[in-house]
Amino acid sequence: MTIYSLYIFDRHCTCVYYQDWHRTKRPKPAVEGSILPAVSQVISPVAISDTATVNASTFNNSPRNTLSSSTGIVIATNESVARSTPPLPPPSSTTLVQQQQGASSAGLPFDEEAKLVYGVVLSLRNMVKKLSGRDESFTSYRTSTYRLHLYETISGYKFVMLTDPKTDYLRFVLRQIYAGPFIEYVVRNPLVKMDSKEYGIDNEYFRTSVDRLVRGLSVFA
Rank of each mutant, 00 (worst) to 15 (best):
S209K: 14
R83S: 03
L148G: 00
V186I: 15
R142L: 00
P181M: 07
K129S: 14
E152V: 05
P29A: 05
I43W: 01
T208P: 02
S137E: 15
L213G: 09
A114E: 05
F206Q: 11
V192Q: 08
S5F: 00
L174H: 08
S5T: 13
P190N: 01
L170P: 10
S68V: 07
N189F: 01
Q100V: 03
I154R: 11
R142M: 00
G119A: 06
Y18M: 01
Q99K: 15
S5D: 11
S140Q: 15
T14C: 07
N189C: 02
R215T: 13
F159N: 02
P63C: 09
S57I: 00
A52P: 00
E198T: 06
Q99T: 05
V160K: 03
D168E: 14
F182K: 06
F9I: 08
R212M: 08
T14P: 00
V31K: 14
V46K: 14
S40V: 09
G33Q: 02
L170N: 13
N203H: 03
N203Q: 11
K129T: 12
A82W: 03
Y157M: 00
R212D: 09
E184H: 15
F159V: 02
K197C: 03
Y141C: 10
D164V: 03
V121H: 10
V54L: 04
S104H: 09
F182S: 03
L150G: 02
D211S: 12
D111A: 12
L170H: 14
I73N: 09
D164R: 08
N189V: 00
R26N: 06
P165H: 01
E79F: 00
I8V: 15
R175N: 07
L122H: 14
A179T: 10
Y185H: 15
Q101A: 06
V39H: 09
I8P: 08
K130T: 14
S105E: 09
F138E: 12
L150C: 08
G119Q: 09
L131T: 14
L6S: 07
D164S: 12
V187C: 10
M161P: 03
S137T: 14
V120T: 10
F110Y: 11
Q100I: 04
S155R: 10
G33M: 04
F159E: 03
Y169E: 13
R11E: 03
R64E: 13
P63G: 09
R171K: 13
N203T: 04
R171Q: 15
K197G: 00
G216N: 12
V74F: 08
K197I: 00
P29V: 05
V120E: 10
I43F: 01
L67N: 05
S123E: 12
N55I: 14
E32Y: 10
T153Y: 08
N61A: 15
N61V: 14
T53Y: 02
R207M: 11
M1A: 09
L36M: 06
E112Y: 06
S123Q: 15
Y178I: 04
D195L: 03
V210Y: 12
A221S: 14
P29R: 08
M1I: 04
F9T: 06
R134K: 07
C15D: 03
G119I: 05
Y4L: 08
A52T: 08
D20V: 05
R171H: 12
I75H: 12
S34I: 01
T94E: 13
S155Q: 14
G119L: 09
G33N: 03
R134W: 01
W21D: 05
T95F: 12
V210L: 07
T153G: 05
G119D: 04
T71M: 11
Q98P: 01
